[in-house]
Amino acid sequence: MTDLTTAVPAATGAAEPRPRRRARRLPPSLVVGAVLVGLVALVGLVSLVWTPYALDDTGDGARLAGPSAAHWGGTDRLGRDLLSQLMAGAGNALVVAVASMVVAGVLGVTVGVLAGATRRWVDVTLLSAVDLLIAFPTLLLAMLIVTVRGASLWSAVWAIGISGSAVIARVTRVNVARVLREDYVTAAHAAGTGWWGTVTRHVVPNVWPTLLVQLMLLGGGAVLAEASLSYLGLGAPPPQASWGRLLQEAQSTMLVQPWGAILPGVAIVVTVLGLNLLGDGIRERTDPNLRGDR
């Protein structure tokens, strides 16, 4: 038996010349997305240990100064270095994106697997809850939570994560139900694999790529939503740097120092665009039906 299985690849390998490495180019959106996200992540990580100036350093008193050799992005109305604030904002955005993905992922996958792989009444009950959650706007859920718990980074993360979990649950459920109908699952079942074994060995690996795409898109949405919330004053409170609040603070003085209102916006767009492209790229790479011009 062992001889047979090892002999087969060797034989075919000898019979025909091995094809060169399969020339399958990575989708451009995957490359661009990964570069953008990697860049933001790098800046965010660096900001944890080093920023050009301390975040509360009001410096030599040059307030609302334009970009210069000492302050690449200029200074804000208190004379703080804008570039340092932006770098710390990247760290904040990263935390929001990752934490929301984790909340939405854990909640959504649990609900989705339960709905897709257990009894029908569980499915129906969970699905109607998910439908309601999908219709409930993230911004309003965030406002409800902030009303009760006060504005903080974690209020925002919970609201965004819970909202996002609805979509993840939907996607998980559809795919779990689809995989469970496949013949090989029936075969595994007949061979004595239990419920848990089926889920971990067959369902999760098959559903994972689709989920990864949804999680990336969710991360982009999370960064946008947190920026909106902190712009409105409902996000991370002052010592913590946040792009949305930087923008809001700069708005009243933007005729004098427009960069304060422009650069945080650029940072948000780069991050969200990167995550969206990364999601699209993973989808193109893993789903052959979607390759091409969508």
């Binding site: 982009g220 909106s228 933007m254 209102a261 916006g265 948000i268 767009v269 969200v272």
Partner: peptide
């Protein structure tokens, strides 16, 4: 990828 409030801020500017 563009936040709606940023569009508003830029238009105001």
């Amino acid at each position: 990828a563009v936040p709606v409030f940023w569009v508003g801020v830029l238009l105001v500017l």
